[in-house]
C-alpha cells in the first residue's frame, strides 16, 4: 500500500469515532499493541528531543525500504508513534520524504501537531523524515 492509501485507511477508521474519548481510547490501545523496540536501540542517541515523554526511534533499510521501530514511556505518545510507524514503515525513502501529513488534522489530532505541545509529534515526524533523507542519500 502507498503512504496515501494507508493514511486514507486511518482516516476511515477514525471517522467511526463519535467523540474524543473513543479516539483517545483507540490511540491508547494502539500504544499498548505497539511492538516494542529492541532494547539495544533504546539508547540516549536514539531519543527524540523536545518531548515531555521519552521517545526512542530506530530505523533500518532492507530492500530499499525503511523499517521503523519505536517506543515511548507515555502511552498516548506511543499510540501516536504507532500511527506514524504504520504510515511510514516499509516505504521507500523518497515517498517518506514527500509524504503529506494532512491526515493528522483529518483524524482530529491537530492539537498534537502544535510545536508548543511538547509531546514531540512534530519532532517525531521530522526525525522519521531525517532518517529517510539519510537513507535516500545512500541509495544515490
Amino acid at each position: 500500500m502507498t503512504i496515501e492509501d494507508i493514511q486514507n485507511e486511518i482516516i476511515d477508521e477514525f471517522s467511526m469515532f463519535e467523540d474524543w474519548e473513543e479516539r483517545y481510547q483507540y490511540m491508547i490501545d494502539l500504544g499498548k499493541d505497539l511492538p516494542l523496540i529492541d532494547d539495544q536501540y533504546k539508547t540516549d542517541s536514539n531519543i527524540i528531543k523536545g518531548c515531555q515523554s521519552k521517545v526512542w526511534v530506530h530505523a533500518e533499510m532492507n530492500d530499499d525500504k525503511i523499517q521503523f521501530t519505536a517506543d515511548s514511556d507515555a502511552i498516548i505518545t506511543k499510540g501516536i508513534i504507532a500511527i506514524l510507524i504504520r504510515v511510514f514503515s516499509n516505504q521507500h525513502p523518497k515517498d517518506i520524504i514527500d509524504a503529506d501529513m494532512d491526515f493528522i488534522e483529518k483524524i482530529g489530532l491537530k492539537e498534537h501537531l502544535s510545536p508548543t505541545r511538547a509531546n514531540g509529534l512534530v519532532s517525531m515526524i521530522k526525525q522519521l523524515k531525517m532518517y529517510a533523507i539519510a537513507y535516500q542519500t545512500q541509495l544515490k
Binding site: W20, E21, Y24, I28, A74, I75, I76, T77
Partner: peptide, 13 residues
C-alpha cells in the same frame, strides 16, 4: 504505572 503526560492530556480533554 501511568505517565503524567498521559494524565494531563486526558484532563485537558
Amino acid at each position: 504505572g501511568i505517565h503524567p503526560y498521559d494524565v494531563g492530556t486526558i484532563l485537558d480533554k
